[in-house]
């Protein structure tokens, strides 16, 4: 096995439910030790992809290789992976300790070794002292950590997580996010992480896989998705606020392009008469250090400008904006990104 061989490889995988769409043409190649986020709106096939990797579902087409071994039809336990469920799937009648060592017991690990591994896993997840509690006697965050401990105790090289933070409140989510990322780096494991929250995906992942309607839209680093969105869906999904799309016909000199993308931070407000577009203010969203001013224009959607500090511009007021050509993103009529120089599809 060469080092360039990906750790997890998914080739042309499809899964359909009674002929209906599940996922189609999924191709992934995941290097060892990376953190991969499967991102997308609800129902786009993230969980299905993860369950195909775990072996809880079997694909209708395609092959899955983990660590150089074809596991397309292998049982979940033969794939050397662990999983954190969205609901945590803790056994309600077993104590924290019993939940964590359940898999070790199944695999007949010696009691002394089991004890040692349990202690380490609880230490890492900060659960020492909770060994005898039942899941029902823990807070949401603690349960989540038990699920994490159960996933890491077996020391598997691959860990799958399906929206592990979606049941936590916003503050806890931010801190557990850091913990999970640190854990992944410290243990050197490969994590495939499902989320519908782009902040989570962008802040944790080395590779983000953005999906829609069962198909992968773009695979790349967070910067790739942000600065080089492969199509208008990615452009409008990633970033907050997402990219604005302007009809090419509205911008003199760019009539040849179907849609033109523009990020809020690349927009400047200028004196009347000097702008490239004249818009009306629709709302102001104050975020502390800056204010996002939403703008409407007859041939653009999602136009926003970011202004420093607190601004209170009355709705309906006319504003002129400008931007430089190198900050523009170009898309053809089917929504794909194209290069402004060559006019070729540019991903």
């Amino acid at each position: 096995m060469t080092s360039s061989e990906p750790f997890v490889r998914v080739e042309n995988v499809a899964k359909r439910w009674n002929g209906q769409l599940g996922v189609e043409e999924v191709d992934l190649s995941i290097p060892r030790g990376s953190f991969v986020a499967l991102l997308g709106p609800s129902g786009c096939g993230k969980s299905t992809t993860l369950r195909l990797l775990s072996g809880l579902e079997l694909p209708d087409e395609g092959t899955i290789t983990i660590d150089g071994r074809d596991v397309t039809t292998a049982a979940p336990s033969e794939r050397n992976l662990s999983m954190v469920f969205q609901s945590y799937a803790l056994f309600p009648h077993l104590s924290v300790a019993e939940n964590v060592v359940f898999g070790l017991k199944v695999r007949r690990v010696r009691a002394s070794e089991r004890q040692e591994k349990l202690r380490r896993a609880l230490e890492i997840t900060g659960l020492l002292g909770y060994e005898t509690r039942k899941p029902g006697e823990l807070s949401g965050g603690q349960r989540q950590r038990v699920a994490l401990a159960r996933a890491i105790v077996a020391n598997q090289p691959l860990c799958l997580m399906d929206e592990p933070l979606s049941n936590l409140d916003a503050k806890l989510r931010a801190s557990v996010r850091k913990d999970i990322k640190k854990l992944q780096v410290d243990l050197g494991i490969t994590v495939i992480y499902v989320t519908h929250d782009q902040t989570e995906a962008m802040s944790m992942a080395d590779i983000v896989v953005l999906m829609k309607d069962g198909r992968i839209q773009q695979t790349g680093s967070p910067e790739d998705l942000y600065y080089r969105p492969a199509n208008t869906f990615v452009a409008e999904f990633v970033g907050s606020p997402p990219m604005a799309l302007i009809a090419g016909a509205a911008l003199p000199g760019f009539e040849g392009y179907d849609k033109i993308g523009l990020r809020a931070e690349d927009v400047q407000v200028v004196e009347a008469g000097n702008g490239r577009l004249t818009c009306r203010v629709s709302e102001c969203e104050f975020l502390g250090s800056e204010t996002f001013v939403g703008l409407t224009h007859s041939s653009a959607s999602g136009l926003t400008v970011s202004m420093p500090g607190l601004r209170n511009i009355p709705a309906g007021k006319e504003l002129e904006i400008t931007f430089s050509d190198e900050d523009l993103h170009f898309f053809d009529s089917s929504g794909r990104r194209i290069s402004p120089q060559t006019g070729a599809i540019d991903i």
């Binding site: 072996g55 809880l56 979940p76 992976l81 609901s87 009648h93 898999g103 199944v106 159960r150 077996a154």
Partner: peptide, 25 residues
Amino acid sequence: PEDLKEAADIEGASRWTYTRRIVLP
């Protein structure tokens, strides 16, 4: 819940182990 069975499957628990250690209790 269905996912208890799935969690047990991932850990490699046999059908019998799952029944004895999870379902019966």
